[in-house]
Amino acid sequence: MFNIKEIMENVPHRYPFLLIDRIIDFKKDEYVTVLKNISINEAQFQGHFPGNPIFPGVYIIENMAQASCFLLAKSSGGLNQNTVYYLGKVNKISFMKPVTPGDQLVTTITVIKFLGRNAAVQAKSTVDGKTVAKGELMFGVSEES
Protein backbone atom coordinates (compact mmCIF):
# COMPACT_ATOMS: atom_id res chain seq x y z
CA MET A 1 0.00 0.00 0.00
CA PHE A 2 2.80 2.42 0.96
CA ASN A 3 6.44 1.70 0.22
CA ILE A 4 9.55 2.57 2.21
CA LYS A 5 9.84 5.99 0.55
CA GLU A 6 6.37 6.95 1.71
CA ILE A 7 7.07 5.51 5.16
CA MET A 8 10.12 7.77 5.46
CA GLU A 9 7.97 10.75 4.56
CA ASN A 10 5.81 10.03 7.59
CA VAL A 11 8.21 8.87 10.33
CA PRO A 12 11.46 10.62 11.28
CA HIS A 13 13.29 7.37 12.20
CA ARG A 14 16.24 6.24 10.10
CA TYR A 15 18.87 3.50 9.93
CA PRO A 16 19.56 1.66 12.15
CA PHE A 17 16.35 2.40 13.91
CA LEU A 18 13.60 2.44 11.30
CA LEU A 19 11.55 -0.61 12.24
CA ILE A 20 8.88 -0.61 9.51
CA ASP A 21 9.41 -2.04 6.01
CA ARG A 22 5.97 -1.65 4.47
CA ILE A 23 2.46 -0.38 5.13
CA ILE A 24 -0.13 -3.06 4.38
CA ASP A 25 -3.32 -1.24 5.30
CA PHE A 26 -4.25 2.27 6.40
CA LYS A 27 -7.37 4.26 7.16
CA LYS A 28 -6.98 7.91 8.10
CA ASP A 29 -7.55 8.58 11.82
CA GLU A 30 -8.56 4.93 12.38
CA TYR A 31 -5.94 2.24 11.84
CA VAL A 32 -2.69 1.18 10.19
CA THR A 33 -1.14 -2.24 9.61
CA VAL A 34 2.62 -2.37 9.10
CA LEU A 35 5.09 -5.09 8.24
CA LYS A 36 8.65 -5.60 9.43
CA ASN A 37 10.86 -8.39 8.18
CA ILE A 38 13.09 -9.77 10.90
CA SER A 39 16.58 -10.60 9.60
CA ILE A 40 19.55 -12.26 11.26
CA ASN A 41 21.65 -9.43 9.75
CA GLU A 42 20.26 -6.96 12.30
CA ALA A 43 22.85 -5.86 14.84
CA GLN A 44 20.81 -6.57 17.99
CA PHE A 45 21.00 -10.32 17.42
CA GLN A 46 24.74 -10.27 18.12
CA GLY A 47 23.94 -9.69 21.74
CA HIS A 48 20.28 -10.67 22.13
CA PHE A 49 21.29 -13.44 22.51
CA PRO A 50 24.55 -15.03 21.30
CA GLY A 51 23.52 -18.31 19.68
CA ASN A 52 19.85 -17.69 20.44
CA PRO A 53 18.58 -14.74 18.37
CA ILE A 54 15.36 -13.27 19.78
CA PHE A 55 13.91 -9.96 18.55
CA PRO A 56 13.86 -7.79 21.72
CA GLY A 57 10.47 -6.99 23.23
CA VAL A 58 11.35 -3.31 23.46
CA TYR A 59 11.91 -3.33 19.68
CA ILE A 60 8.39 -4.69 19.23
CA ILE A 61 7.15 -1.75 21.35
CA GLU A 62 9.27 0.58 19.19
CA ASN A 63 7.75 -0.97 16.06
CA MET A 64 4.29 -0.27 17.55
CA ALA A 65 5.34 3.31 18.36
CA GLN A 66 6.69 3.96 14.84
CA ALA A 67 3.51 2.51 13.31
CA SER A 68 1.49 4.87 15.55
CA CYS A 69 3.68 7.76 14.45
CA PHE A 70 2.97 6.88 10.80
CA LEU A 71 -0.77 6.70 11.47
CA LEU A 72 -0.87 10.08 13.23
CA ALA A 73 1.47 11.86 10.80
CA LYS A 74 -0.12 10.46 7.63
CA SER A 75 -3.61 11.24 8.99
CA SER A 76 -2.64 14.87 9.46
CA GLY A 77 -1.09 15.28 6.01
CA GLY A 78 2.50 14.06 6.52
CA LEU A 79 5.47 14.83 8.72
CA ASN A 80 6.04 18.42 9.55
CA GLN A 81 9.50 19.53 10.62
CA ASN A 82 8.15 21.32 13.69
CA THR A 83 5.83 18.55 14.83
CA VAL A 84 7.09 16.05 17.39
CA TYR A 85 5.26 12.80 18.02
CA TYR A 86 6.23 11.32 21.32
CA LEU A 87 5.41 8.13 23.16
CA GLY A 88 3.82 9.13 26.47
CA LYS A 89 2.83 5.86 28.04
CA VAL A 90 2.94 2.13 27.44
CA ASN A 91 0.09 0.22 29.08
CA LYS A 92 -0.53 -3.45 29.66
CA ILE A 93 1.87 -4.83 27.05
CA SER A 94 2.04 -8.60 26.96
CA PHE A 95 4.47 -10.71 24.98
CA MET A 96 3.05 -14.09 24.03
CA LYS A 97 5.64 -15.67 21.75
CA PRO A 98 9.28 -14.98 20.87
CA VAL A 99 9.97 -13.32 17.52
CA THR A 100 13.00 -14.69 15.66
CA PRO A 101 14.90 -14.11 12.38
CA GLY A 102 12.80 -15.08 9.34
CA ASP A 103 9.57 -13.93 10.96
CA GLN A 104 7.39 -11.26 9.40
CA LEU A 105 6.13 -9.05 12.19
CA VAL A 106 2.72 -7.59 11.32
CA THR A 107 1.53 -4.84 13.66
CA THR A 108 -1.90 -3.24 13.65
CA ILE A 109 -2.53 0.04 15.45
CA THR A 110 -6.13 1.06 16.07
CA VAL A 111 -7.10 4.44 17.52
CA ILE A 112 -9.08 4.10 20.75
CA LYS A 113 -9.55 7.80 21.37
CA PHE A 114 -8.28 11.18 20.26
CA LEU A 115 -8.14 14.10 22.62
CA GLY A 116 -7.09 17.10 20.62
CA ARG A 117 -4.15 15.67 18.71
CA ASN A 118 -3.10 13.26 21.46
CA ALA A 119 -4.13 9.68 20.85
CA ALA A 120 -4.65 6.48 22.79
CA VAL A 121 -4.11 3.45 20.55
CA GLN A 122 -4.49 -0.31 20.75
CA ALA A 123 -1.53 -2.23 19.36
CA LYS A 124 -1.36 -5.85 18.29
CA SER A 125 1.57 -7.64 16.67
CA THR A 126 1.30 -11.00 14.95
CA VAL A 127 3.56 -13.50 13.19
CA ASP A 128 1.84 -15.94 10.79
CA GLY A 129 -1.52 -14.78 12.13
CA LYS A 130 -0.67 -15.60 15.74
CA THR A 131 -0.53 -12.79 18.29
CA VAL A 132 2.99 -12.26 19.64
CA ALA A 133 2.42 -9.01 21.56
CA LYS A 134 -0.37 -6.60 22.38
CA GLY A 135 -1.10 -3.59 24.52
CA GLU A 136 -1.97 0.10 24.56
CA LEU A 137 0.13 3.18 23.86
CA MET A 138 -0.50 6.86 24.55
CA PHE A 139 0.83 9.34 22.02
CA GLY A 140 1.40 13.04 22.37
CA VAL A 141 1.87 15.56 19.60
CA SER A 142 3.56 18.88 20.15
CA GLU A 143 4.62 21.76 17.96
CA GLU A 144 8.14 23.03 18.41
CA SER A 145 8.98 26.48 17.24
Binding site: K89, N91, I112, L115, N118, A120, M138, G140
Partner: peptide, 13 residues
Protein backbone atom coordinates in the same frame (compact mmCIF):
# COMPACT_ATOMS: atom_id res chain seq x y z
CA UNK B 1 -3.11 16.16 28.70
CA UNK B 2 -1.87 12.62 28.09
CA UNK B 3 -3.15 11.50 31.50
CA UNK B 4 -6.51 13.17 30.82
CA UNK B 5 -6.74 11.30 27.54
CA UNK B 6 -6.17 8.08 29.47
CA UNK B 7 -8.86 9.03 32.00
CA UNK B 8 -11.32 9.62 29.17
CA UNK B 9 -10.42 6.46 27.22
CA UNK B 10 -10.52 4.28 30.36
CA UNK B 11 -13.88 5.67 31.49
CA UNK B 12 -15.36 4.96 28.05
CA UNK B 13 -14.11 1.40 28.17
Amino acid sequence: SMALLEVLATMEK
